[in-house]
């Protein structure tokens, strides 16, 4: 997982579409989000995306041993990273400072039982004051924040630095289950299972935090933990941890005191 995947260059069609975006912008932002992003001093440039179709096949696993399936972990990680990198490239072509509202999806198609398409998409934005808001690596920042969240975050004196993630594909042992079916009324912890699943989550979270560390981030907000079995059967689970790494932007701005209201709507 140490080597960053290389980008394969952008398809010709993408280049052409982006060329047209010199004068007009496209975005999947709602009007509310659009207004708040403008309010925060940014301008949307265009809808950007990246995709990668990756073979996420099978790794031999020992029936009776709980273990990380490192080859699968690496495949899942690299596939997403590649999609993200391609999305970032599109954003760079637009000379963007960052990408907001990033969504990461995995699609399975009928034509490839062991492969999947990883897609990343979002709206590229650029600061209106001419200052650069790129992250420490000189790349546009990425974040899965909505327009509203982006505005609120800016008000607290933080800036997004990048969407960070960590993943761990784990195989849970089959053996030992027979013992769980013994006498009723005895409640005991099953330490092997606890240990295995605990470790898998911690690995995913640690990897996410390491990514944030590389961006010199102050922290990560909006962390989500997802668990999916994809197409591997119930004993093999991917633990994915995702969040937006943030850096301090200097002066701390404080939000105005909220007013109590009762909405008469709905």
């Amino acid at each position: 997982m140490s080597d960053t995947p290389s980008s394969e260059g952008l398809p010709k069609d993408a280049g052409h579409r982006l060329e047209e975006l010199r004068n007009l912008f496209t975005s999947d932002l709602s009007v509310n989000e659009f207004l708040l992003i403008k309010e925060a001093g940014f301008h949307p440039l265009g809808f950007v995306m990246g995709s990668s179709i990756y073979h996420t096949g099978i790794q031999t696993r020992k029936w009776a041993k709980s273990q990380e399936l490192d080859k699968l972990t690496e495949a899942m990680y690299n596939a997403r990273e590649l999609a993200m990198t391609r999305m970032e490239e599109e954003a760079q072509q637009l000379d963007a400072d960052g990408i907001v509202g990033v969504r990461l999806d995995v699609n399975y198609y009928e034509w490839g039982s062991d492969s999947a398409e990883f897609i990343a998409m979002g709206t590229a934005v650029k600061a209106e004051n001419g200052q650069s808001y790129r992250n420490k690596l000189g790349l546009p920042f990425t974040s899965d924040l909505s327009g509203q969240d982006f505005w609120t975050l800016m008000q607290t004196g933080y800036l997004p630095a990048g969407l960070v993630m960590g993943t761990c594909v784990y195989h849970i042992a089959h053996r030992g289950l027979a013992q769980t079916l013994s006498s009723v009324g005895q409640n005991v912890e099953l330490p092997n299972f606890t240990q295995a699943l605990y470790e898998a989550r911690e690995l995913a979270m640690t990897r996410m935090q390491d990514e944030a560390g590389r961006l010199d981030a102050a922290g990560i907000v909006g962390v989500r933990l997802e668990e999916k079995s994809h197409q591997w059967g119930s004993h093999t689970i991917e633990f994915l941890s995702l969040g937006t790494a943030v850096v301090r932007s200097g002066a701390e701005v404080t939000l105005p005191k909220p007013t109590t209201i009762i909405s008469l709507d709905h």
Partner: peptide, 24 residues
């Protein structure tokens, strides 16, 4: 605590499951 947890918790980078609103 598992060793992975101890290492992660001592990191200078904070992580939070809070939404940006709750964070603010």
């Amino acid at each position: 605590l598992p060793p992975e947890a101890a290492g992660r918790l001592s990191s200078p980078v904070f992580s939070s499951g809070l939404s940006v609103n709750d964070f603010a």
